[in-house]
């Protein structure tokens, strides 16, 4: 456990922000986010909004950043270290699950900030956590922008994150007592079940394939070439 914690934080590489696919992804996220903030409107910097943003959107941004700064694959030296295929697979999946747990912890801490608001009921908290979970289970796309498979994966990621983001923006408004809540919450939940969840389940196959490819150096190299 101590090794996984240490390796997890050591796996962060700032240089990954320079990669083409990550750059495109970040660019789209940080263009979409301010535009949507403007569109949802009525942001007049009230204290409730600031706290709601901090509790809801900041953890989301940190999750995305954490995903982008690490690779699900291993450094070349790890493929040379004495490990059986099963041990390496266990290590990769263990690091992945630990990463999901860390991101969800950050998300939970964010939710704890907004719980004191009387408008943040259990439903809002769960909705926010579910949206964050759809992002927390992602890993950075690998490979060049010329790869069709990579492009499809990035498109799916952007859609999932954008929808989760919109949903959380609306939750922010609810928590900050700007919107009537019952029908909005029902609509958000409906969108989650009908649109977001199926999209994420479809994305899972990319995810699993990526982690399985990371078990062997050769398959990982082919993916990231």
């Amino acid at each position: 456990m101590k090794n996984i914690v240490r390796d997890y934080f050591r796996a962060i590489k700032i240089s990954r922000l320079g990669r083409e696919t990550n750059g495109l992804f970040l660019l789209s996220y940080f263009i979409v986010m301010p535009v949507l903030i403007g569109v949802t409107g009525n942001v007049n910097f009230r204290r409730e909004y600031m706290i709601a943003f901090t509790g809801i959107l900041l953890p989301m941004a940190l999750c995305c950043l954490d995903i982008l700064l690490r690779s699900p694959g291993l450094d070349k030296m790890m493929y040379l270290c004495p490990m059986s295929r099963e041990e390496r697979k266990k290590y990769i999946y263990g690091m992945y699950r630990f990463g999901v747990a860390v991101r969800m912890l950050v998300s939970l801490m964010g939710v704890c900030i907004i719980i004191p608001f009387s408008c943040c009921g259990l439903f809002s908290a769960v909705q926010i956590l579910l949206n964050d979970f759809l992002i927390a289970v992602m890993t950075a796309s690998e490979g060049s922008g010329e790869n069709d498979g990579t492009n499809k994966e990035i498109q799916q990621q952007i859609l999932i994150i954008a929808l989760a983001f919109i949903s959380n923006i609306i939750e922010t408004a609810i928590v900050a007592d700007e919107l009537p809540d019952f029908w909005v919450k029902l609509a958000l939940f409906g969108i989650f079940v009908i649109v977001q969840l199926p999209m994420s389940l479809k994305y899972v196959r990319y995810q699993k394939q990526k982690l399985d490819d990371a078990v062997y150096y050769e398959t990982w190299l082919r993916r990231t070439a």
């Binding site: 450094d75 070349k76 030296m77 040379l80 270290c81 004495p82 490990m83 059986s84 041990e87």
Partner: peptide, 15 residues
């Protein structure tokens, strides 16, 4: 695992 345990490597890349 057994084979890798017996091999020492120096490559041109920074490992």
């Amino acid at each position: 695992k057994r084979i890798h345990n017996e091999i020492g490597t120096v490559l041109t890349e920074e490992l």
